[in-house]
Design a protein around this nucleic acid. Structure first.
Lengths: 229, 229
DNA sequence: ATTCTTATTGATCAAATGATCTATTGCGTT
DNA sequence: AACGCAATAGATCATTTGATCAATAAGAAT
């Protein structure tokens, strides 16, 4: 852990940019743990600085929280995903699975999941904008690709896509919000969820099924790529 | 709504039981809206009583919150569900769908969803106990029934059941936590999710597919309106 | 080594908040 | 109508917490 000496002879001078970044990083960790109403004194203790220093860099606590929001939300959505989803040279099964692997890789973290949930409960406009963004740029195109790939008359609606999405996101909610035991490796569950969804709309397998077995054989998960913190 | 006059000549004397119940009800509504760190003065204003009165019925704010937890969690899990899930005289498709209709009916409310999320983020032991309860008494038996009904070698693991569960619960999270527009009637989405899950394990349809609508389902499917309360 | 800029500290204020205690008064009893 | 119990109100205390500001000292420039 970072050093947490609150007040001693070890007064260090950092450049404003470094100090500001350090405060934002510490605030992200702290507020994601205790909630957005965490107090600045406890935060300053964890940072190893005085409480007043925080207000030297952020005029108000709300300002600090907005910096945290920006740091957390920034660059989580890869600009490559719309092209990935729309790339019809690859089977939709493959594209959907790759997308959800990368998407969960991006947002399944203690900080992101909890800050998002805290700010969502607080009614932050930022959350609604984010979800609208995800819906318009990622999920709706994903639906269109599924509809285009489905040979029969059964084609997914947006609510079906939200169901696929929610089932996968819920893994992160269990792990980081409820903090109940979860498999270390969520990849088999994601693979199975995407596989079931593809099957449900009679989408032919093509070469995707060889590289991606749609059903995991056992519960022996090997790697743990995402830790609890 | 209830009258919210804070202090006037309308001092009313209620029996301790009535007053206590009134405070718990008001606290549930208030805390579910603003979070568990809401203050007792604002709560007392909404109740139309003085702040000190709250501490006449609850020795501490934590006491009050525990009463809120009890009121919210109490009797949400029907004792009939284990028997419903285990009733092999009915197709598993039918049982799963009925269960999720009744379960979402029970917990999809502004108060429940948000109190559960707030206390989950706060790390409340009660949440973990609740989820453990759901897992052991409902989801694991549900998995066993699916495994028994599946004719082929593909049988669901617990993670698959959690995926089904999460995809459905996520509807309530979108509506009450994120408060984004959702269909008024979530029944079609639930029906579709359970249907896809059943299909994925090659479970024969039997008469389930005809007798499915056990609720008077309206036609308000594409009707997307935000119904936050 | 001395000077100077400014990042940082320590003290402090004002408002908010949980909790306590005594005075009031609604309402059943007589 | 008078009485008395106890439900309720109002005042108040002790902390907590966001925010301010003058004093201090780290580190670069000379």
């Amino acid at each position: 852990m970072t050093k947490a000496s609150p007040s001693a002879g070890d007064r260090k001078r950092l450049s404003p940019e470094e100090r500001r970044a350090m405060i934002v990083a510490g605030a992200t960790a702290y507020f994601s743990e205790v909630g957005l109403e965490g107090n600045t004194r406890e935060l300053s203790k964890r940072l190893g600085v005085t409480q007043s220093l925080i207000f030297n860099y952020f005029s108000t606590k709300t300002d600090l929280l907005e910096a945290v929001y920006r740091a957390v939300y920034l660059d989580r959505i890869s600009p490559d995903w719309p092209a990935l989803i729309a790339d019809r040279s690859r089977p939709i099964h493959d594209r959907a699975l790759t997308f959800y692997r990368e998407y969960t890789q991006a947002i399944f973290s203690y900080e992101w999941m909890r800050i998002f949930m805290f700010s969502g409960l607080a009614g932050a406009e930022l959350n609604r904008r984010y979800l609208e963004h995800v819906s318009r740029l990622l999920l709706r195109p994903l639906m269109e690709e599924f509809r285009s790939a489905a040979p029969g008359p059964r084609k997914p609606e947006m609510e079906d896509i939200w169901n696929l999405h929610g089932g996968i996101i819920y893994i992160g909610i269990r792990r980081y919000v409820y903090q109940v035991p979860c498999p270390d490796d969520q990849d088999p569950a994601i693979r199975a969820a995407v596989g079931r969804f593809v099957d449900a709309f009679d989408i032919p397998c093509e070469q995707a099924c060889q590289t991606v077995p749609s059903l995991p054989d056992g519960k022996a998960q090997a790697n743990a790529d995402i830790t609890t913190r």
